[in-house]
Design a protein around this nucleic acid. Structure first.
Lengths: 237, 237
DNA sequence: TTGATTAAATCAAACGTTTGTTTTAAATAA
DNA sequence: TTATTTAAAACAAACGTTTGATTTAATCAA
C-alpha cells in the first residue's frame, strides 16, 4: 500500500515525489525501449531512486508499467478534452451544417497532429501508445477507453455526419480511422519521413513543419470527405 | 562471415536449410517481440536448431537480425516490384494526364494496403518494419533503401505530378507521406481499429474488409489531391 | 519543548533466473 | 583423414525481485 496519512494535504510528500519521478523516468524508458528492453535499474538510476523503490511503490515492474499507463491516460485525456468537448456538444445539439462539421473535424485532426509532437523534447507518450497498439498489454484497455475511444468516436460521428451515413456504420469507422491514421503516420513512420525530408533526428520536425503537416492533414481530410459526399449524392449506394 | 559455397545449386543444402529455418523463425520472433525481447534460445528451438547455430551461421544475434532484414527487404521488394515498375516508366515517359496519374497512384496505394495484410497468418514482416521506424537500428538503412524509398519516392512523384508541383518540394513529400500513412495506420493502430469495429483478434480483418479499406484509402487519396489541385488552380501560392 | 514511539521510505547487498555467447566434443560429410 | 556441422554443457553478465537494516519524519505522552 502507498503512503497514507491522516487525510489532509500532506500525504507524505517525500514518497509521492519519488513515485512521480519513477513514473516520469519509466515513461521515457518504456516509450523508447518497450517493456522488456527497459530495465528497472536504469529507470531507478534516472529517477534518483534505489533499485528496490519500484517494488516498494508499485509492487512490480508491471505495476509500474500500469501506473505509467494511468498517468498517461489521465494526462493526455486532459490535454485533448478542451478541444474534444465542444465537438461533442455540437454533435449532440440539433443544428449541424457541412461547414461547421468540417470546422470541428479539422480542429480535432489538427489537435491530434499537434499532440503527436506536443512535448518537443519528449516523444515518449506517443511511442508508448503506439507500442500498446502493436502488442497490447493489460494497459491497453485503459488507454483505449480514456484516450483513443473518445477521440475515435467523435471523429467517426463527424465523418458520418459529413457524408450522410450512420455513425454506427462500419464505413464511417474505417473512414475515420483512415483520417486519424494520417496523423499517426507522421509519428509511427517518423524514420522514413526524416530520411525523405532530410530533417535532423532531433526527435521532431520544427514548429513550422508541424504546422505544415497539420495543414496538409486537414486539407486532405476535408477534401476527401467532400469527394465522398459528392459521390454519394450522385451515385447510389 | 556467413556460410558461402562455390556457386552452383547445392551449396550444402543442409546448412542452407538451417539458415533459412533460422531466418524464418527469427522474423516471427523479432517482429512480434522486438530485438531484445526475442530470445536466441526460443528462435533456435522453433527452427529445430541448436543454440550454437545462430552464432555459427550469423556470428551473433545482431548478425541474425541483419540477415532477417535483408531477407525481408529482398522478399517484400520483389512483392511490390511488379506494381511499382509500371508507374516508374509512366513517370519517365512524356505523356501524363490527371486521370492516368490518379490510376497509378490508386494502384500503388491499393498494393500497399494489401501488402499490410498479405500473409494472413503472419503479420511479422509489417511489424518488423514498423519497429524499425520507431527505433531504427543498423538494419533500417537497408530496409529504407530497398523497400520504403522506392515506394515513397514514386508516390511522391505521382502526387507532385497530380497537383502540379515539383517532386522535390517538401510539400509533395509530406502530402505523399500523409497518403501512405493511411495504409500504415491500419496496421500500426490495429488494436484500436479492432476495438472500434469489433473484429476478432485473429490478427487481420477478413478479405472483404481489406478490400473495403483499400477502396476507402484510394477514394480518400484521390479526392484529397483533386481538392488540392483545384485549390492551387484557384488560389495563388 | 522535550524524548520515546512508530510507520513510511530508502538503502546496499544478495537472491535465483535468464540472457547471449563460448567452449568442448561428438557426428557427418567429402 | 580433413573439414564442416551439430549437440550439450558451461560461461559471465544482466535481469527483476527480495531481504534486513537504516534513515526520515510525523505522532503523542510527559
Amino acid at each position: 500500500m502507498a503512503a497514507r496519512r491522516a487525510s489532509s494535504e500532506s500525504p507524505d510528500a517525500r514518497g509521492e515525489a519519488a513515485r512521480q519521478a519513477l513514473i516520469i523516468a519509466a515513461l521515457e524508458s518504456f516509450g523508447r525501449y518497450g517493456f522488456d528492453a527497459a530495465s528497472v535499474r536504469d529507470i531507478c538510476d534516472r529517477a534518483g531512486a534505489n533499485v528496490a523503490a519500484v517494488n516498494y511503490h508499485f509492487g512490480s515492474k508491471e505495476g509500474l508499467y500500469l501506473a505509467v499507463a494511468e498517468f498517461l491516460a489521465n494526462g493526455m485525456a486532459m490535454g485533448t478534452a478542451h478541444v474534444l468537448e465542444p465537438s461533442r456538444v455540437y454533435l449532440a445539439t440539433g443544428k449541424r451544417t457541412a461547414e461547421a462539421t468540417e470546422q470541428h473535424l479539422g480542429g480535432l485532426l489538427r489537435a491530434l497532429v499537434l499532440s503527436m509532437f506536443a512535448n518537443v523534447r519528449d516523444s515518449s507518450p506517443a511511442l508508448f501508445v503506439l507500442r500498446e497498439q502493436s502488442e497490447p498489454t493489460s494497459a491497453f484497455a485503459l488507454i483505449f477507453e480514456r484516450l483513443l475511444k473518445p477521440m475515435h468516436e467523435t471523429i467517426t460521428a463527424l465523418v458520418a455526419d459529413r457524408i450522410g451515413i450512420a455513425a454506427t456504420d462500419l464505413e464511417a469507422v474505417i473512414r475515420a480511422h483512415a483520417l486519424i491514421s494520417q496523423c499517426v503516420g507522421f509519428k509511427a513512420a517518423k524514420a522514413a519521413l526524416q530520411k525523405r525530408t532530410g530533417w535532423s533526428s532531433a526527435d521532431d520536425p520544427g514548429q513550422d513543419n508541424v504546422e505544415l503537416i497539420a495543414d496538409v492533414v486537414v486539407e486532405h481530410s476535408i477534401g476527401a470527405l467532400r469527394a465522398v459526399a459528392a459521390g454519394k449524392r450522385r451515385g447510389g449506394k
